[in-house]
Amino acid sequence: MNIHIPTPLRAYTGGAETVSVPGATVTEVFNNLTSQYPDLKQQLFNTEGKLRSFVNVYFNDEDLRYLPEKEATAVAATDELTIIPSIAGGTDAVSPCCSCCPSL
């Protein structure tokens, strides 16, 4: 199946935006991905082997975390995985600007 790699992680896939990796489940695909590109492992997983909290993985258009079987989900060659780090931030200002914005 194809895995789409976000810009910051392409340094670990030889610049490839899309890599094709075999596997019958998401776990197998990830194992094969990190075997093929070992430096990706510490970027994607913490020391306990869990996906880092800011790393989102989408199975086609579904968030892997909300799939019933999660990493055990069966995959077909035509499915796609997308790895997408989160993007967020803010000013750290503490006062509300209006009645719809509660103070932190």
Binding site: T7, E17, T18, Y58, A88, G90, P96, L104
Partner: peptide
């Protein structure tokens, strides 16, 4: 809940924007 001092882009929106970029031959 706190749009005056926080922002967050939904991951699925990012997935679609990355797909859009790919279609245009561009990157994020």
């Amino acid at each position: 809940d706190s749009a005056h001092n926080r922002y967050n882009i939904a991951p699925i929106e990012l997935v679609k924007i990355q797909r859009q970029a790919r279609g245009l031959g561009l990157d994020i």
